[in-house]
């Protein structure tokens, strides 16, 4: 049942190319699961390529800025606005580490033993990407905090009543800064320390999880 929508979608496609569509439609009717999977694959690949291209061309903050304006002020929207631009970067890191793990001998051994493809992917390859992934997460944590602070500073971030260091710096902090410099200093120091901490953690984790880079 779950594949019906795909079938309908394919059936409804415009008949611009009379040759290709009937073939596809027949394929979809005969092998609905395969067709759905194919469609899904194509969509995913296209999305990945597209997102990758986008990331190449636009600074994280500019994209987040437009996105958070588009989605409106709400805490979950800010999360989306900050995380979506990071996705392609994460995908790239995982892809490159999978590419190298794939060539490892134990993967070859598993393949030689006739272990199924999916099992290799999830049982043997995926767990080994955790190291680089954690490194990536801690590295991105810092920039995510900075982007959030910037968005909030510009009034496009986390809305009231949720407190945000970035917003503490906007509105009235600068206005009262001379009478009460701590209004400007402390939120900024808090942001810096949080990012500093996550960067340090990232460095340390990288040393532990990725020994090749130790000392670098």
């Amino acid at each position: 049942m779950a594949v019906r929508p795909a079938e309908i979608a394919v059936a409804r496609l415009p008949r611009a190319r009379p040759g290709a569509w009937p073939v596809l439609a027949r394929f979809a009717r005969k092998k609905p699961l395969g067709a759905a999977g194919g469609v899904l694959m194509v969509v995913m690949v296209l999305t990945a390529v597209f997102a990758d291209l986008l990331l190449q061309g636009l600074p994280l903050l500019v994209l987040a800025l437009v996105m958070s304006a588009a989605l409106g002020p709400a805490i979950h929207n800010v999360v989306i606005a900050i995380s979506i631009p990071i996705i392609p970067r994460a995908a790239r890191v995982i892809r490159s580490s999978v590419l190298s793990i794939r060539e490892m001998q134990y993967v070859e051994a598993a393949r030689a033993l006739g272990v199924r493809h999916l099992r290799i992917a999830f049982r043997h390859v995926l767990p080994n990407t955790v190291g680089p992934f954690i490194v990536l997460c801690t590295a991105q944590l810092g920039s995510a905090i900075l982007v959030e602070a910037t968005l909030s500073f510009l009034g496009l971030g986390v809305p009231e009543p949720y407190p945000s260091w970035g917003r503490m710096l906007s509105v009235s902090a600068a206005e009262y800064a001379q009478k009460a410099p701590h209004l400007v200093l402390f939120p900024g120091i808090a942001i810096s320390l949080a990012v500093f901490g996550s960067n340090l953690l990232g460095d340390a984790l990288r040393d532990v999880l990725d020994p090749r880079l130790r000392g670098a």
């Binding site: 509105v171 009235s172 902090a173 600068a174 206005e175 800064a177 001379q178 400007v184």
Partner: peptide
């Protein structure tokens, strides 16, 4: 646009 800058400029 930035309130603090505005005030600093007046001051």
């Amino acid at each position: 646009v930035e309130r603090g800058t505005r005030q600093a400029a007046l001051q």
